[in-house]
Design a protein around this nucleic acid. Structure first.
Lengths: 346, 346
DNA sequence: AACCGAGTTGTTACCGGTATCAAATCTCAC
DNA sequence: GTGAGATTTGATACCGGTAACAACTCGGTT
């Protein structure tokens, strides 16, 4: 008895296979495969015949099988510290739109700012044979680095310009940005510039911002006062608390540079609650351009960072490497520009 | 000459295969497979031997191969209308955390509020043989529905309680929530309650909110005035514009219910800019509880929706279906509760 | 001593495609 | 008409695992 196309059971339900299409079209599976993936290698008549059968029986190709067989996958792995942080969502959007257009899929996971968790996720992505990785953090465990190297998968790092890039980098410089804003405040005449920093453990972005701030103070000839640097967590409440703390310890403070957008809004609200005029009593500057900062009163001076562009550019470079084998891109560092947006608060 | 383990080329670089582990441990690949996936089916000594070789040569299993062979995958597809909308990120976070703990991976894509794009994404996910789908929208093309049905993949819908569920539903009721808030405003004594709606084309959530508002007006015995219903886009600027428009056309308006959190903040800012007291001149109520609403002055009355829970619960139900074959969950509808949060603005 | 069942390991076929090379057909110049 | 090269199609092995069943080991029974 010939092999019947007996009903197959399994989690995915019953979906037609390529051989079903082939049989019905009276051709070999290779011809079906070509008609779908390399249409030019098949005669017009044959292509039509195959495609009509595909449509007729609702055939859906099996990407698992084709990836396995061809040793090429169409998924890209992305690891962000936290999905619900608005600064990443723009980057994700940029990545997503480019990647989709090329028929790739995005696998996303969050590391919770933890390098060990990141390593686990990288491992998981590698077992899924992603053809590229996008990492927001630029701090990785040695094991994670080793695994990536061994796998040969191209990588883009996004959150900062690291000293020793893993492979490709698309980012702005947190150091430069913080430096620029601090210089901007200095030139406006502020003498006691406080800096609200996010916790810098396992967060090189945060560390670099602090360094940029400090370098600018040196350049400006301003005294470094450790009481003016405040490490805090995220959120509106944290911003409010920063104001309270800094005013208490350094009453003569005349400007507050918040290394996070939400922080700055929290600080502004707290000042308003206390009846302090911004920027007359104290100036406020922020680090990222969310829509909100433009609409509060006073509007907040901030840095516009190329979040969406970072995603878009990362995707393009990754796809070039994957699809065109653009080896010349290996190790390239793209330092995208930011902008100081002067508004009413400073 | 026996088959050599000649170096293999390809996109993924060279990674060890199970047979390499097997050879080195002097066992068959099945034993390696068991040691990794069903440890109890292998003797202690054997398990140790295999695992030590796995570690030694840095073997990473190939999920593509195992999924293909076992007809089970460990990826789940998620489609949201827009990644950068903060209301979805909490749900994604809930999903992500549960899914990760079970060793599954999330594939995420955005439909841009377009059912046709959603259909394409569903198709793409099915070709990747996801073992479950999470859809935020509850409006789908007939073809999309047919493909899902044919595939047999379990689905959770998230954004609303649809009339004809595809399969499982985990959501709150937009109708009920809008009804509850409108009733709340009515009981507070407001007589001319305006409703700022997001565009309702291809957005049943938006449509249901409007219906809930209208039903409450009927219940309250208030006149329905079409001029009090304003359709607008997202964003702070839109919120500001709504205030201008409604005041112009209906000067006696005394409350504004915004069907979106950002909209409410925009409206509040606009009122402050115009020097109108909230809630004395006009009350403001919002639809989602972002942190911001608690920190503005006046703080904004709003609805707390179970965004994170929705994600968590969706993931659990999906995983029960996938891993435990919990067929009794098919078609179940979970209507999670919301809360009216009374604050200063109404 | 022969038998039995549980526990452990191996053999073989197959998951659904694609790479590779061979075969068949076509094209066209001479 | 014929041979070389191009084009189109097919046969077969293989991608890296797992399912299903066979085979073997071993202590305990009868």
């Amino acid at each position: 008895m010939p092999k019947q196309s007996s009903p197959r059971k399994g989690q995915f339900g019953s979906s037609a296979r390529m051989r079903d299409v082939a049989k019905r079209a009276g051709v070999s599976t290779m011809t079906v495969s070509r008609a779908l993936n390399e249409p030019s290698k098949v005669s017009d008549e044959m292509r039509e015949r195959v495609l009509s059968v595909v449509k007729e029986i609702g055939y859906l190709p099996n990407h698992l099988a084709s990836s396995l067989s061809s040793n090429r996958s169409t998924t890209i792995g992305l690891i962000v510290p936290s999905i619900d942080n608005s600064i990443y969502t723009q980057t994700v959007k940029g990545l997503s739109s480019v990647i989709r257009q090329s028929g790739f899929q995005l696998m996303i996971a969050e590391s919770g700012y933890d390098p060990n968790e990141e390593e686990e996720l990288i491992t998981a992505f590698l077992t899924h044979r992603v053809s590229g990785l996008v990492l927001h953090s630029t701090e990785h465990t040695p094991q994670a680095i080793a695994k990536i190297r061994k796998s040969g998968v191209p990588v883009v790092e996004n959150g900062n310009i690291p000293e020793k890039p893993l492979d490709m980098v698309v980012s702005y410089s947190n150091f430069d940005a913080a430096y620029a804003m601090t210089m901007h405040l200095g030139r406006l005449g502020y003498k006691h510039i406080a800096f609200a920093s996010l916790y810098s453990v396992h967060n090189d972005r945060s560390q670099d911002r602090l360094k940029g701030y400090q370098a600018a103070l040196v350049q400006l000839g301003l005294k470094q006062d450790p009481r003016l640097v405040i490490e805090t967590s995220r959120g509106l409440a944290a911003g409010a608390e920063v104001v309270a703390r800094v005013i208490h310890s350094v009453p003569e403070v005349d400007a507050l540079f918040c290394a996070g957008d939400v922080l700055a809004v929290g600080a502004l609200f707290e000042c308003q609650k206390r009846g302090w005029s911004v920027p007359d009593r104290i100036a406020i500057a922020s680090f990222d351009d969310v829509d909100l900062l433009r609409h509060v009163a006073p509007s907040v001076t901030t840095l516009r960072l190329p979040r969406y562009d970072i995603g878009e550019r990362s995707a393009r470079m990754l796809l070039s490497r994957i699809m065109d084998g653009a080896e010349h891109l290996r190790g390239s560092v793209v330092d995208l520009k930011f902008e100081v947006i002067q508004r009413e608060s400073a």
